[in-house]
Write a protein that binds this DNA or RNA. Sequence first.
DNA 1: AGGCCAATACTG
DNA 2: CAGTAT
DNA 3: GCCT
Length: 738
Amino acid sequence: MVSTQEKIEKDKFFRDLYLLDSLDDDSPESEVETPIRLAAKAKRQPDQTLDAVQHERAKQITTRGKVGERRPETVPSTVSAVDHTLKKAKVPLPVDAPKKKALPEKRKRAPSTDRELRRRDSEPALTAKSAPSRARRLKTSPSIVVDSAVQTTKRSSEKRKHVTDLSNIKQRKHQLGSKKLPPVPIGEQMLKGLLFYFVPNNDICQARRFRIHKAIQYGAAWANEWCNGITHIIVCDNLDVHEASKEFACKEIPRGPTLVNVNWLIECFSRRAVCDTHWNRFQVSGSEALKETNKEQQQHQSKPLIEHEDSIDKHAVDEETPEGLEANAAECALLDAETESEDELDNAIRDVRSLGSLSIDPSFDDGAKSPGDEPPVDQEPAPFHGDGKARKENAGFMCMEKHDGGKGDNPNEQTIVKLLKMADYYSATGDQWRTRAYRQAVAALRKERRLIRTKQEALTVRGIGDRLAEKIQEIVSIGKLQRLDNAEADPRDKILRLFMGIYHVGFPTASRWIAEGHRTLEDLYQKADLNRNQRIGIEHYEDFQQRIPRAEVAQHAAIVKKALRAADTEAQMIIGGSYRRGSADCGDIDILIFKKDAGLDQIRALMMETVIPELTAQGFLKVALATTHHQDSGSKWHGASALPGSKTWRRLDLLFVPWAELGAALIYFTGNDYFNRSLRLHASRKQMRLNQHGLYADVMRGQGRERITQGRLLEGHDEKRIFEILGVTYRPPEHRNP
DNA sequence: AGGCCAATACTG
DNA sequence: CAGTAT
DNA sequence: GCCT
């Protein structure tokens, strides 16, 4: 069932693709320029002796404690010594820094000191004195000091404000007016035949007027008062359902037309296509409850209903999905009326999830991004790589109109924001468990209807203990958390974040480097002991930090698909990851490769021998970062790709999936993390085991839950069956964002 | 004091 | 085996 | 970090 709309979209897609192809004279050896052109140039010789000393000590340090039990108490001293140096040396090449003062300082106290203790007493002093100056230095340094995540975030939020301000809109409008005002070609009028009703339904706000006009250019009609035939109600200004309903005479949102937020329209513009309206990010906040029931109805009714509004989005790329897999959603859903276990899963999810990692209300995001829309290219770089990982408050979008302040439905919002920052801080600092504790506390607070003021009140909330209770009280009473301010000003953590942002660098490595005296990416690049992947990670630090617009993910995928099909007409692929969950942008590109009835060997051979070499020769694939070298094992290719003509490398993962394991792999590579973990937890509670190969039963576990038996395979191929066997109501990918 | 958020694949 | 990744 |  290929709708014409779909077809048009697809045609256009491939037209674009071929266009790109024609540009493709980008020979592979011409390599994209590295943002960092340093290399051999001014490579000073660092004082080897001192270096060696440091190295030695670093080794002591790192070998003394176990992972996760790190004792960085020697780090501060190193840092302060270096810092001292830096301050003195004005604009020294960072290279010089570590060699000057090699800190023959006294051995610190016994390594038994807890990291928390160390922070408590070493932090304030250090921060107070030297942080500001160093911060400034970091920023202005001519070296390639890439902004730390924190700085980046801050700055981009500043930027965002500018983007939304009036002058900018005018600018954009001007741009538009000058060249795009003439109606777009008929062929591109993808909104033809649609009738929009906006909420609020006026064009007072410039941003909205802009969108309305643009919608009209693209063929839509605007109903300036309520009338029959309206196809879409588009809610702007981040209004929730409740607020939106006030805009109607009957104080109720009329049924019938599709209710979406303005993000939908914006994405339609940028994709030049009518997007599927069912994605989470297009829902009007507060409509969840409503939607759930709708969905149920849909499921109980027939399929056409589900599909009816659809879904260029889904089919354009998920087209490859074997039909059997997607098709019987409704049936499956019907089968398990066992609501109890669904609750179980919900609980598990709740247990596990971090609310902080997701944008609460997608419409914020986008509104902030660009009132004038256009392709959502310049997303702020995520504070961290990984897709759902570290995204937090989508602060201040406000169009210059209404924006009533009453959107913060949770009285604890301020507390939550602060605690989430703490969680981020701890996660960037490598403290898994504290991070979890903070996130759990946040989750608990989210459910509270009342403002938690005092320590006593806080203590009554499950998940909040003594320490957190005190912090909450502090936040509420004085509006800030000293601990957080200290933490955020702490240069060590900025550097830590900076380093951990490098591909293939985790906490142990990052902190080792800091202990060795490295402070900038340049330091690392010239002096640190880097493996190949890390070197590439530094060269493409900024590339890999950037989020990838959804549309670009699709383009990469299309290129892969072309090569795949050329090699084997029956081979198939699905884009997984956050793309499959419907995200507007992704941290990387996950593509599952498979073929009906094919085993792993077959897929691997196809890919490794034909497709990947071909794509590499084309210059599309830039590097392999982690690839199987064995001929007879291995199931993935990790690397980087870039669109022809683009200098930006993207992280691309190709997963080779045997037909028999498609369902399990799909679950695994669709995520998100928390969803997967909760699903697996759920499985293990039922004496089952879920991994990317399949769902297994009769798993024996011994001491410490280690597995004794593998268990027997229950299901691997059919995604929905796995849900079913687990007793969980099937959730389409876009609902797997706990 | 020790678990909590799993279970694997690849690298060096 | 530790580290990093998914 | 919290909980047992």
